Deep mutational scan, measured.
Amino acid sequence: TTYKLILNGKTLKGETTTEAVDAETAERVFKEYAKKNGVDGEWTYDDATKTFTSTE
């Protein structure tokens, strides 16, 4: 399943996707990605669109 991440950081904005077996796995991948890029925001998830959003 393809999951999408929308980053709305103070210094980094953008989108990326990952293939994962479930939302929990995708969330771990995306949170590590955000951390590596210095984004520490509030997380939301929309199951209908398989989209995570992190907003600082």
Rank of each mutant, 00 (worst) to 15 (best):
T1V: 11
T1M: 11
T1K: 10
T2D: 04
T2K: 11
T2G: 04
Y3D: 02
K4W: 10
L5C: 12
L5V: 03
I6H: 04
I6C: 07
L7C: 06
L7N: 01
N8Q: 10
N8T: 07
G9A: 06
K10Y: 12
T11N: 14
L12T: 13
K13W: 11
K13F: 11
K13V: 12
G14W: 15
G14M: 15
G14F: 15
E15G: 08
T16K: 09
T16D: 03
T17L: 09
T18C: 15
T18G: 03
T18R: 04
T18H: 08
E19D: 11
E19W: 15
E19Q: 14
A20N: 03
A20S: 07
V21Q: 13
D22Y: 03
A23N: 07
A23W: 15
A23Q: 12
E24M: 12
E24C: 13
E24T: 10
T25I: 07
T25M: 10
T25Y: 06
T25N: 08
A26H: 00
A26K: 00
A26F: 00
E27I: 08
R28Y: 07
R28Q: 10
V29R: 09
V29M: 10
V29F: 15
V29D: 05
F30E: 00
F30H: 01
K31R: 15
K31A: 05
K31G: 02
K31C: 06
K31V: 06
K31I: 08
E32R: 05
E32K: 06
E32C: 08
E32Q: 08
Y33S: 01
Y33A: 02
Y33V: 05
A34P: 01
A34Q: 02
K35H: 10
K35S: 10
K35I: 11
K36S: 11
N37F: 15
N37G: 05
N37D: 03
N37E: 09
G38K: 06
G38P: 00
G38A: 07
G38V: 03
V39G: 03
V39E: 04
V39L: 10
D40M: 13
D40R: 10
D40N: 14
G41I: 05
E42P: 04
E42I: 15
W43F: 09
T44Q: 10
T44E: 11
T44M: 09
Y45M: 01
Y45E: 01
D46G: 00
D46T: 04
D47W: 07
D47V: 10
A48P: 07
A48H: 10
A48L: 12
T49V: 05
T49D: 04
T49S: 10
T49F: 04
K50W: 04
K50R: 11
K50G: 04
F52D: 01
F52P: 00
T53P: 00
T53Y: 13
T53L: 07
T53G: 02
T53H: 07
T53E: 05
T53D: 02
S54Y: 13
S54P: 04
T55A: 07
T55I: 10
